[in-house]
């Protein structure tokens, strides 16, 4: 039996479908929306519909875009010799925040996950290879997450890139800045030692 009116119940049921939102949080959000002004509620509804209907994947890199190409692919100042391969569009934001990378991106939209049956054909790997034909790309940076699935995906792509004769690099992994060696695990420390550089 529901204690709320039907429209309120519908709102709670829709909010509870969002990731990380449980029934209690959904109820709190629904009450907040009800208690706020009608303008706020309309703005939220409009923003949701506009984002969903107006945003799609970039033709080249599969980042989110509201035109045919995303703002990064459209930017004439970006270095078009470099492509950084990431798992998710959220990873682009993390890399952009460093202000250290000025090349283009390619979003795979996931990683190879054998136990879940996710293979290379479900990712945007074929599109990456297609992108490399007839271009001036000089280096591919594989920036998938440094976990087993990310490493496996990077190794798989590196194998496919061999015939292209393009420099392929992998982002470094090891001790985080500000971390302490004493607390590092064996796998992280091995990666840090393998990727050591001359100073």
């Amino acid at each position: 039996m529901s204690y709320y009116s039907k429209p309120l119940n519908n709102l709670i049921n829709e909010l509870v479908k969002l990731p990380g939102i449980g029934p209690k949080t959904a109820q709190r959000l629904a009450f907040f929306i009800l208690e706020s002004s009608i303008e706020n509620a309309e703005n939220l509804a409009r923003a949701l519909v506009k984002a969903k209907s107006g945003i799609h994947f970039c033709r080249d890199c599969f980042n989110f875009a509201n035109d045919e190409l995303c703002p990064i692919c459209q930017d004439p100042k970006r270095n078009r010799d470099l492509i950084c391969v990431v798992e998710d569009a959220k990873d682009i934001v993390a890399i952009e925040k460093t202000h250290q990378y000025h090349g283009l991106y390619h979003v795979l939209q996931g990683t190879i996950a054998p136990i879940d049956g996710i293979g290379p054909e479900q990712l945007k790997i074929a599109q990456l290879l297609k992108r490399l034909k007839n271009t001036t790309i000089k280096e591919i940076v594989l920036a998938t997450n440094p976990n087993i699935e990310g490493e496996q995906t990077a190794m798989y792509i590196a194998k496919l890139l061999k015939p292209f004769n393009i420099k392929t690099s992998r982002i470094a992994s090891g001790i985080p800045v500000g971390g302490e060696l004493e607390y590092a695990d064996e796998l992280t420390l091995s990666c840090a030692l393998a990727g050591r550089r001359e100073i």
């Binding site: 054998p114 136990i115 087993i148 490493e151 496996q152 190794m155 798989y156 194998k159 695990d185 064996e186 796998l187 091995s190």
Partner: peptide, 24 residues
Amino acid sequence: NTIDPHLGIVSNLDKINYGYAMLE
């Protein structure tokens, strides 16, 4: 606390796939 991270598996694409089949 790690006993063995099995680095020989995780650094070899072929072994990863066979290892995954065992885990599954």
